[in-house]
């Protein structure tokens, strides 16, 4: 489904601030894989997601989604097959537009935007059904401006928008990190539900080791721009946080340095 071939990404090349974010990273996701991606600060997790989504161009290598080489495609074209939820709940929705308008924008992801009316009445019923699945009462507030919603509500809505039109690849970039624990849990449950229901190939970045272990069928750990651990199947099911920390130490030769991950 997703094939990443030896990609390389440097920021601020040629300056004193030069930083190698991804170095010769290769990774293959099979159809239906739900991969959790974990790593310390600056390991390159978010950079990897942004490179796959087309936010940053890569310096070397190639990215192939469903047999199509997207390495040179701009971000908005890749969005036709990629659904995304960001860390910042404000980032995934248009605050000045209504809930139904946001959903209608997402419903047309990858299509030409015509001069037809932006939302049809038929769609509204579909949106109501989907929104009621979120169990947040949003189905009765179709016209409410998204800016009036709480961070958790916006994030749940973004998740719905990312999956409304089934993407070939779902990218979740620490999408629960900015939420309070209860809301985070709820959004995670919804993510699990949507991913399972549509059998979505997913790459989820998280800081929370427990979440990384409990969710998905495969766990990948990054360090200094490379994949250092790749655990799946039964081995992943028996993984514990301590076990994971130990294996991180063996693989990287360092202590795991991330307060957020350890305290979580």
């Amino acid at each position: 489904m997703l094939v990443i071939n030896g990609i390389h990404k440097r920021f601020n090349a040629g300056t004193v601030n030069e930083k190698i974010a991804l170095s010769n990273l290769s990774l293959t996701l099979e159809e239906g894989d739900f991969v959790t991606l974990i790593g310390g600060n600056g390991a390159g997790k978010s950079t990897l997601l942004n490179c796959v989504a087309g936010v940053y161009p890569i310096d070397q290598g190639s990215i192939i989604i469903d047999d199509i080489d997207v390495t040179k495609l701009p971000e908005h074209k890749r969005s036709a097959v990629i659904g995304r939820v960001f860390q910042d709940p404000m980032m995934g929705t248009a605050a000045n537009m209504g809930i139904e308008e946001n959903l209608a924008l997402a419903y047309r992801r990858g299509q030409f935007r015509s001069l037809n009316w932006g939302i049809s009445n038929k769609e509204r019923e579909v949106y109501k059904q989907f929104l009621s699945q979120l169990d947040l009462g949003l189905e009765n507030r179709l016209n409410a401006k998204v800016g009036l919603l709480s961070g958790g509500q916006r994030q749940a809505l973004t998740l719905l928008m990312a999956t409304l039109k089934k993407p070939k690849l779902l990218l979740l970039d620490e999408h629960t990190a900015a939420l309070d624990p209860k809301t985070a849990e709820k959004v995670l449950q919804l993510s699990d539900k949507f991913i399972k229901e549509s059998n979505l190939t997913t790459l989820m970045v998280t800081h929370n080791m427990r979440n990384a272990i409990e969710h998905g069928n495969r766990l990948i750990m990054m360090h200094e721009g490379r994949v250092i651990l790749d655990i799946n199947g039964e081995e992943k099911q028996h993984l514990t946080v301590e076990n994971l920390l130990k294996r991180f130490g063996q693989a990287s030769g360092e202590e795991f340095a991330d307060d957020r991950a350890l305290l979580a």
Binding site: S79, R84, F86, G92, A94, L105, R108, R109, G118, M161
Partner: peptide, 25 residues
């Protein structure tokens, strides 16, 4: 109110979101 008009409004409101929804900002 059309699809294209909504895409322009989304672009002005949140370009990052617009690109993530496949809009050529």
């Amino acid at each position: 109110g059309t699809e294209m008009g909504c895409a322009i409004r989304a672009t002005g409101n949140n370009p990052q979101m617009a690109r993530a929804q496949g809009i050529n900002t």
